[in-house]
Design a protein around this nucleic acid. Structure first.
Lengths: 223, 223
DNA sequence: GTCTATAGGCTGATAGAC
DNA sequence: GTCTATCAGCCTATAGAC
């Protein structure tokens, strides 16, 4: 997933123009295109062109377009699942843990800008490409929020809410923000939507955290 | 958009098997497929088959696949814009108006179950199919929320929040909920996610309304 | 209005030279 | 590992019969 520059060291055979580089360039290009245009909206021709590689290389390195897509999904889901599982298994304060979840999703989205669009497309498509190996990792996102909210409701840190609805509103807000970034950028550039103050990831993260903190706090009348 | 059964009345020529019916069947089938699989993920062959029509009818009635998609987008965006503009131009209480927006989006989504998936795909794709005619109508959603929040912040009904961020979290939560419905249904059916109590649109609407009401209310320390 | 048949373009994959 | 050339399949659009 990540496009690690990965210093080459001193190789002896400069002739095969670095398999590592081609492979990663293809992944980087394909990730962008799949996020922007979806799987069927992207041709191997386009991927190769953007990667500065030959389209035959996609079959050589990955075994075809579908396998390349799966490789990308795997890395993307792995990155977010890894982060969330740590929070899920280590938190003590539900309110704080929920903030951490928001921050973690935003952090992964900052490092891998195409992750939210890919996830959103996958969800909207009914998870068609998520097999029994990928699905559990994908659901780690859901499981983490659900566990935290469950704990919070039990301990009285949160008012009585459905953990599933809380998950959907949290993830929906965040994915939508990040996945709409290119569209918003266009609207701002064309002067259609106010770009001042500029859209800011950190500010939006705080916005969602605030909304959740205030929205889930038990009020006087809830007791 | 809507698949109005539209009683035929007494026509004289039963031979041309009802143009109206074919046209609407194509729109209904295409709307489902575009929502499920996206524009490029759907072939005219599939649309025709699901509509029980001939694929040449797509060119005849609409002028091609792209024109059919545009027809659908137009109707979809029109339906939601129409509803929101009424709220935008007639509200007095910002807190109540925001509730109405949530309810209106949910209501349109109930009548046209594919509307959120189509909108989400369009946003994630950078609004590629929204021309200068469709874009303003689409942005009525944004403008309505922004105006309401602006008013609420000015009158002190809401704490000081960015209307744009409020819009993104509101719309993101709702679209994500509705567009993920098929996926959730699958997860519940396979016993992967608890389906008890069953996911309920009205309950989710209340959840989002509550989250916003509590999340935007000015607290003692905000004054 | 509807259908069949077909044209013509593009897509993903791969054999084989280097 | 990389590239060129090529192929079979699928796609959208349409001409023309009914």
């Amino acid at each position: 997933m990540r496009l690690k520059p990965e210093p080459l060291g001193d190789r002896e055979h400069p002739k095969p123009r670095e398999s590592r580089h081609t492979r990663e360039a293809l992944i980087a290009a394909a990730t962008e295109l799949f996020a922007e245009r979806g799987f069927s909206g992207t041709s191997v021709e386009q991927i190769a062109r953007r990667a500065g590689a030959n389209k035959a290389m996609i079959s050589y390195h990955f075994g075809g377009k579908a396998a390349l897509y799966r490789t990308i999904l795997e890395a993307t889901i792995g990155a977010i699942a890894e982060r969330l599982v740590v929070i899920r298994d280590g938190f003590t304060e539900p309110a704080d843990a929920l903030k951490q979840v928001v921050a973690a999703i935003a952090d992964v989205a900052s490092r891998q800008p195409n992750f939210p669009a890919l996830m959103l497309r996958e969800v909207v498509s009914g998870g068609r490409h998520l097999d029994e190996q990928l699905l559990p990792r994908f659901l780690a996102i859901f499981g983490t929020v659900a566990k935290i909210v469950d704990a919070g409701v039990r301990t009285g840190a949160f008012r009585s809410v459905d953990p599933r609805y809380t998950h959907l509103s949290l993830v929906g807000s965040l994915f939508f923000f990040f996945a709409s970034e290119p569209f918003r950028r266009r609207l701002v550039a064309e002067g259609i939507v106010p770009g001042d103050p500029p859209f800011d990831t950190a500010a939006y993260v705080r916005h969602v955290q605030e909304l959740l903190a205030r929205g889930l706090k038990p009020a006087a009348e809830d007791r």
